[in-house]
Simulated assay, not measured.
Amino acid sequence: MSTQLTTRDTGERIRTAAVLLFARRGYAATSIRDLAKAVNMTNAGIYHHVSSKEALLADLMRVAQQGLIDATERMLAPYARPADRLALLIGSLTAIHARNPMTTRVMDGELRSLTPGSAARDEIIALRDAYEDHWRRALADGVAEGAFRLADQRLTRLALMSMCTGTSEWYRPDGDATLEQVCAEFVAIGLAAVRAPADAAVPTADFSQLPDFPWEPPDVRNDPRPDEARR
């Protein structure tokens, strides 16, 4: 096995452990020692691959957020109609969170852990804003064209996005509904919330275009054992 491949595999193992620990315990409650123990390395070994715990968090959030933006822009590119764009935004954000519950939990909840005023924090905020701009424009265009009727665009955006991101907390692949069914129902709810025409056919999100996060841990949400028992 080449040194390059070994280094990449080790880096991925570190990121998988970091995502799981950050998502379950929280970034602040996770130490480099915890991370080293999870991957059977020394603290010095961890620092060979990452410069700091905060740099590791920022990198995970940066790659995940950029992947979300890139996938969104690919899916939205062929569509101009606001209802089509909103449907794709709802379906894709729902699916990404359902399929990557630990990564998205970190991505959504740990901005507070980045140092205020740091370049990394400013970069992540800018990426978040760039993604949310797609939602803002879809809703604003729908209102301007008379296709949507809503009282408060900001509250509507926040409500719909929260509905989608919540799947990281409750969706189970072996549950009663498939992910396709969940996405379709959420799209229907979203379009009803903006009072879009009921007879408007809309596209469905292409899951094959969604970002792949190779460090996403196996689904451990149903495992009652503590972290240490799974190592």
Rank of each mutant, 00 (worst) to 15 (best):
residue 2 S to H: 10
residue 3 T to N: 11
residue 4 Q to M: 07
residue 7 T to Q: 13
residue 20 L to N: 01
residue 25 R to Y: 03
residue 27 Y to D: 00
residue 39 V to F: 02
residue 41 M to N: 02
residue 42 T to F: 02
residue 45 G to Q: 02
residue 47 Y to D: 06
residue 50 V to E: 00
residue 52 S to L: 02
residue 58 A to E: 03
residue 64 A to N: 05
residue 64 A to P: 03
residue 66 Q to D: 11
residue 72 T to E: 06
residue 83 A to L: 10
residue 85 R to E: 08
residue 85 R to T: 08
residue 91 G to I: 08
residue 93 L to E: 15
residue 94 T to W: 07
residue 95 A to M: 15
residue 98 A to S: 15
residue 98 A to M: 14
residue 98 A to Q: 15
residue 99 R to P: 04
residue 101 P to C: 10
residue 103 T to L: 07
residue 104 T to K: 07
residue 107 M to C: 12
residue 109 G to F: 08
residue 109 G to S: 11
residue 121 R to V: 13
residue 128 R to V: 13
residue 129 D to V: 08
residue 131 Y to M: 09
residue 139 L to C: 07
residue 139 L to R: 06
residue 140 A to R: 11
residue 141 D to Y: 09
residue 146 G to R: 10
residue 150 L to D: 05
residue 151 A to P: 05
residue 151 A to S: 10
residue 155 L to R: 11
residue 156 T to D: 05
residue 159 A to F: 07
residue 162 S to I: 01
residue 166 G to P: 03
residue 171 Y to C: 04
residue 173 P to V: 07
residue 175 G to L: 07
residue 176 D to A: 11
residue 182 V to E: 07
residue 187 V to C: 05
residue 192 A to L: 14
residue 193 A to W: 10
residue 193 A to L: 13
residue 198 A to D: 13
residue 201 A to Q: 14
residue 201 A to H: 15
residue 202 V to E: 00
residue 218 P to W: 00
residue 220 V to L: 12
residue 221 R to L: 03
residue 229 A to S: 13
